[in-house]
Amino acid sequence: MTTRLVFIFLSAILVNNFVLSRFLGICPFLGVSKKVDTAVGMSIAVLFVMIMASIITWLLNILLVSLGLPFLTTIVFILIIATLVQFVEIVLKKTSPSLYEALGIFLPLITTNCAILGLALLNVQQNYSLLETIVNAAGAGLGFGLALILFSTIRERMDISDVPEPFKGTASALITAGLLSMAFMGFQGLVKL
């Protein structure tokens, strides 16, 4: 049982990294990776929303299956995730203005992040139990953070180094993302579920 949880956790972080192996959540990966500070903020927000959304969608899925409406999962999950993110934003604004300011625009942006929806749908597909779902969500969120923070540190270094004119900015960022993804391929086969 415990080993299975550890495997799920490791697999979500390294082997099936959401950004670098599953290619989900590419938009914030490129958009929010210019500075390490914002990357950390975004990672924390994603981790939090991923765990919350996974738990609620897991419960909802039971309802959907018992009603015989599994084809509604996608649209119901989107609705629930959007509501959840809005709720988190409202509460944060009231309870922790400093965190709210730090996360800024990223929090509402997560609403439309495919990584969150992808995670919720994958959890359902794999028939995970509630505990496994939570572990998987934590792993996915940490994996997203790992990729984002790694990438942002590389980009910060590249900004100050002497890059040939045609490769400046997005061009070198895309190449870096490709190399990073290839590096993560090395984890393939590390964990077998």
């Binding site: 959907l64 009603l67 509604l72 649209i75 629930i80 509501t83 409202i90």
Partner: peptide
């Protein structure tokens, strides 16, 4: 009927909740 009802309840519920 079920899907319409479910979506209506969820939608209204989410709206009222927010």
């Amino acid at each position: 009927v079920y899907s319409v009802l479910l979506m209506a309840i969820l939608g209204i519920g989410a709206g009222v909740f927010l």
